[in-house]
Write a protein that binds this DNA or RNA. Structure first.
Lengths: 214, 214, 214, 214
DNA sequence: AATGAATGAGTGTTCATTCAT
DNA sequence: GATGAATGAACACTCATTCAT
């Protein structure tokens, strides 16, 4: 499973191999339980080379988070074509998201779980990416409201909460799909789309649920 | 800072103190970064005593997960009264959930984050509790459909996905509320209820979103 | 040669054993070349215990410097009785100094050589002790001048230079005596006393050597 | 900061650049703390080239000691003109010594401190040079005694001790002058000359200090 | 019921050194 | 003549765990 052992490769290539190995190991074992020895071995190089190129375990982990977060954002962005209706854009984005997280489960574990459980520094790194996605979803909600010929009279904080809930649900479903046999990316996307779009439409019609008095 | 030092207490009490300290430490530092030294000190006892009562770090962590998972399930169950309409039951459950996770953030971190990032054994422990909650939510959805005089013609897998999405959204919002200033449990519950209930109603009316052909 | 292996000793005792071993090892190998493993083994304990008691290699080394510097100053002070003539006091001090450095060559190496070659922090630690000795010698020179019924019209900077030269010569002779067979502490002290006392007397008589014009 | 980068230079020149860099680095950081990486970078060449020319860290260090020791001896020898009175010769030698050590503090650190704190091999290398200087001083003392029309009835061992003390004092003053602001080579030489010459004269007049009975 | 004393095993990190070009 | 790529071996330090009392 480790990279084919080939000596004397250019630095850039080796670095990617190391990141590959690191993402797999961090994703599987967790940040702390992953040992640099294991990562080096999986990458097919000696430990000093890992340090020569990536300096420390912390920097290596950060590099993993950055690379995978960027890859995920790129995947989602690439899946969406502007100009289509908002619901279609949301669908396309969700589908791309679930396809990507299913294709790279270790990467998803690194970005979503590991990055958030080992200190503020790493968490912040992952949070930056998440912000991008939340912002994207938020904008879609606003556009959808406009398309429905409705003033965006949903208060801003309300929209933020909805986007948060939607993204949170997507994240949970991604993990769920990755750990539950027979759930495809398409199914996950459909479920969430049904759950979310219908809810959003209703809200835009002013039919919202009123909590009982405290 | 730790518990007031009092010698010679009955075992059951000491054990709870240790678990308190462990939950706080695990929640704050993470499973691996938490040291038995720190936990013992925070509990106000010597390390060998911790081992005498709880045998190992793994067992100690498991005990934490069990205790806190049970506490959370109990809290949700206690918040709900049967006999009320389904939406009210869901609301009550969500509110109890957000109140509890806000009151015990370290416990929530242990059960939701730490338990899932350090090996299958721990993850399974937490998953068991989660199942209970998902089952509860599933049943509410079914009841709601029945109340709406509609046959639960939503396929079972669909319902499972919806419950999963709902619970996932709740979990994300809990963490979000715990780390975002000025978001109360009531607000989180309202946001989610709006998002979810409206969506569920729509679905039960057969107005679901159809994905484009692959 | 290592301490007789005896288990379960009180902390204070173990600590001294560790310092003994550390002084020997640092003195022989040098600060950097000495490994904590070696020190622990020589002390007859495991490495973690060394860390438990002395925290780090740096702190261990600092503790060595402090202990041995204090021991040397104490030895010199104890060798001198106030009330005797200045030359006798100087002789007694020098003799005590050479006896001590000959009895504890590793300690002398640590304080005089190692402490000065591995960073400002350590150097400062040793310099503090040296200051005490220089101050002591300086005072003796002043007293000697007074005893000789001469105003201490030697300028202060001049006296400082002389004390520095005297102490420097003593330090060099100590190392020389330690590495040259057949040179006793008494001989070293006699040589230096002859060299120094005669010179000082001459200076106090105003017979100083005038350098040629630049 | 390092030598201007120029490719393809003759070996002899490159070697001197490497030694320059090595002396500076060893002098500043110490033998063990200095890394071959740092030295190579400061020399403006790649590490393998350093190994090609100087074989190993040990040999590199040895080469540094040899070069700098020789340079120091040469400097002292060049400062002295035979035919002048002994005291003038001593003065000239001391002055040359202090001027050289002040001009090349890193070299002085290498030869005097580093060489003596990292194993017998290096110490022996530096000791060889020292012997030359001690021998030179010894001969001056003998000549001085002869000039004073006195038989050198000072026993040989006594003379050796005096030379040792004188050289030791000089070494200490050199380091002292290098680390104390405002002390010039000339001042150091004057202080030592006063201290030493007066003492030596006295001794040659038979006025020596008699130690108390043991 | 409780603890001071002690350790085996492992981790991240560094460095002198070499090979292939 | 010169170097980018790569490593074996070691070292400081930590931690879960146990023993003797």
């Amino acid at each position: 499973m480790g990279a084919v052992k080939a000596k004397r490769m250019p630095r850039a290539v080796r670095e990617q191999q190391m990141l590959d190995a690191a993402v797999e190991t961090f994703g599987q074992r967790g940040y702390m339980a992953a040992s640099m020895d294991e990562i080096a071995e999986l990458a097919g190089v000696s430990k000093p080379l890992v340090y020569l190129y990536l300096n420390s375990k912390e920097e290596l982990f950060t590099a993993c988070i950055r690379r995978e977060a960027a890859a995920l954002v790129t995947a989602v962005r690439s899946g969406v074509r502007t100009g289509l209706p908002a619901d279609r854009q949301l669908w396309d984005g969700l589908l791309a998201f679930f396809v990507h997280t299913a294709a790279y489960p270790h990467a998803w574990s690194v970005v979503h779980l590991q990055a958030r459980t080992h200190g503020e520094t790493f968490a912040a790194e992952a949070a930056a990416m998440r912000e991008e996605i939340v912002a994207f979803v938020t904008s879609l909600i606003v556009v959808a409201a406009r398309e429905a010929h409705r003033d965006p009279d949903l208060p801003e904080r309300e929209v933020a909460g909805l986007a948060e809930a939607l993204v949170g649900a997507a994240e949970s479903l991604a993990t769920w799909a990755n750990t539950t046999d027979g759930v495809t990316a398409r199914q996950a996307a459909t479920t969430l789309m049904n759950f979310a779009w219908a809810g959003l439409s209703n809200l835009m019609d002013g039919r919202n649920w009123t909590p009982p008095a405290a």
